[in-house]
Nucleic acid binder design. Structure first.
Length: 164
DNA sequence: GCCAACGTTGGC
DNA sequence: GCCAACGTTGGC
């Protein structure tokens, strides 16, 4: 068993990815089931990533997908460090205003732990009591890195254990 | 493909 | 500091 924290300060999160770009399956098949979460270019999302601590649990969500759904659970394998793609002129994520001395963008490493027993779709989340305040479900919410409250996390994990 | 909502940029 | 223009996200 991995070490578990009981009374803990760990927080829970959700990250979005378009499966055409990088899917839950891609993560599952990656070396050590781990990837660096590069390419976040939104300040709020960046700030949240910098709050992530090693071992924090993270839902992996498929956006712009059919269906849009939470696919599995990851953990933070490495805390925030500079996203090297911001310095790479050839990268889609290149940022000419960022410098190595004062990097603007950061990434974390995420490691897959387990798929949910079944994907939990956005539609299902919307119709589940107790999730009304979830960031993901707020009108106009586009944040690609979001906090998830402990009670929301439990509702979703329990939901995934039940048949639709 | 459409388009609402949001974030960023840059002129003033 | 305001805000119009533009670019992006992401559900549908």
């Amino acid at each position: 068993m991995p070490t578990t924290r009981t009374s803990d300060s760990s927080r829970r999160w959700l990250v979005k990815s378009e499966p055409e770009t990088f899917s839950w399956d891609d993560l599952w098949k990656a070396p050590k089931r781990t990837t660096s979460w590069e390419g976040v270019r939104n300040y709020q999302a960046r700030n949240l990533m910098r709050e992530m601590r090693k071992g924090d649990l993270v839902f992996f969500y498929h956006s712009s997908a059919d269906p849009t759904a939470i696919m599995g659970v990851c953990e933070v394998a490495r805390e925030a460090y500079p996203d090297h793609t911001q310095f790479d002129r050839k990268s889609h994520y290149y940022d000419p205003k960022s410098t190595e001395d004062d990097p603007r963008w950061f990434m974390v490493d995420l490691r897959a732990r387990e798929p949910l027993p079944r994907p939990v779709t956005l539609a299902e989340l919307r119709s589940t009591r107790g999730l009304e305040r979830m960031a993901l479900l707020q009108k106009g919410s586009r944040l690609s890195v979001q906090p998830v409250a402990a009670d929301e996390w439990k509702v979703i994990v329990d939901l995934a254990k039940r048949e639709r």
